[in-house]
Amino acid sequence: MASLISVSAQDRETFPSVPFGIKHALADDPLLSLDRLIDLAARLPRHSIEFNGGNVAIDQNPDTVPLVEMEPTEIVRRIREANAWMVLKRVEQVPAYADLLKGILDGVARDIGHADAADAGFTNIEGFIFVSSPNATTPFHVDPEDNFFVQIHGEKYFHIIDNRDGSIVPDAVMEFRPGAHRNLTYKPEFEDRARVFTMNAGDGCFVPYHWPHWVRTGSSYSISMAVTWKSTAVKRSNRLLAVNAMLRRYGLPQPAPGRRPTFDAVKIAAITALRAPVEELRRLRSRGLSAAE
């Protein structure tokens, strides 16, 4: 079976360490058409849909984000003139989209030498579909997973900033702080370290874990999809960042992950032990059981 996402041999060598451009065969998939996305917006639970005005700043203050006074389905229906930005979150809640995401990552996994996505360590597979009006902006932020981002309709400019030395987004900001908004401080000089991907239908890019980025659309409405997953290394890093944030709140700032590997391992073991009962309860509930059963 042909892969839906094409990764060059050269980019396979660096995956998943640095960003790169991709080609894909998803632009004509009926599931990603505007009509089907209207239906998807009606089917998803309300907490899985986020939207606001599209005319925001790259470093938009979360307290002053412009609102859109329309229902989600109406926003998608009128996206050409709605001046809106919308994301349909965790679309794998709908089985057809879960199958699509798995098929995409199974193909990538085969291309890099694995049997399928599970064999490649692609776990926690999730999909996020963005429907944006012309000239809309997604502010500067980082994501806690790896991501193949594919452009389905319209033009999009994707700015990914090299922060490997921690000088753009400090270590403390990367930590998971309850209640913290995803938008980050942005300065125009960050563009000196940016790689900008200009994407039309059939184009895309790979966004590595925790690489800061911001996005804007062109003169047409835009449909895009982020195909995300978490590797074992990413899940370990996320747990460590959660521990570091907790300790920082108690006045004990921690070194960034990787600087003290032995101490990192101790913290990971501690948080894993503390979370085990909670995660088991969640697992039971997801199967429709109770702890008493």
Rank of each mutant, 00 (worst) to 15 (best):
I125H: 01
I49R: 02
F263A: 15
L274G: 06
A109Y: 04
N147C: 14
G54E: 01
A136C: 12
D63S: 08
Q60A: 15
H213K: 06
F140C: 09
K230C: 13
L247S: 09
A27N: 01
A84M: 05
F158N: 12
M199F: 07
S48G: 11
I112W: 03
Q93P: 04
D11V: 03
H153L: 07
H159N: 14
F158G: 04
D116V: 02
E69N: 11
S222M: 06
S3W: 02
N163A: 12
G113H: 10
L184Q: 11
A265T: 11
S219L: 13
A82H: 01
A194R: 14
T64Q: 10
Y186D: 09
R216M: 12
V266R: 03
P72S: 04
P134I: 04
L37V: 11
S8I: 06
G154T: 05
F206K: 06
P95I: 03
M246E: 01
R239A: 09
I271M: 10
G103N: 14
G113D: 13
D264R: 09
F206Q: 04
D162G: 07
D119P: 04
L88Y: 03
I104C: 14
K230D: 11
M70N: 06
F148S: 12
S222R: 02
I160K: 00
D165I: 12
S286V: 07
T123L: 12
V68F: 11
S8L: 07
A98I: 00
A242G: 08
L247V: 05
D192W: 05
A270C: 00
T123Y: 11
L44V: 14
S219K: 08
T73K: 13
P134Y: 09
P261V: 02
L281C: 10
P255V: 09
A118F: 07
T73P: 03
E126G: 10
P261T: 00
L34S: 07
S48Q: 12
K267Y: 10
I129Y: 00
D63T: 08
H210K: 11
V7Y: 01
D165Y: 04
G179K: 04
D99E: 14
E13H: 11
V196F: 02
H213A: 06
V142M: 14
A42K: 15
G154D: 04
Y221L: 13
W229F: 15
R36Y: 10
I104F: 11
S33H: 05
V169D: 13
N147Q: 10
S133V: 00
T232W: 09
E69K: 09
I160T: 01
E293Q: 13
V76D: 06
Q93V: 01
I22W: 00
R110M: 15
D28S: 09
V266D: 07
S286G: 13
Y97P: 06
R239E: 11
R216E: 00
V18R: 08
D63R: 10
D63G: 08
I79C: 10
V169G: 11
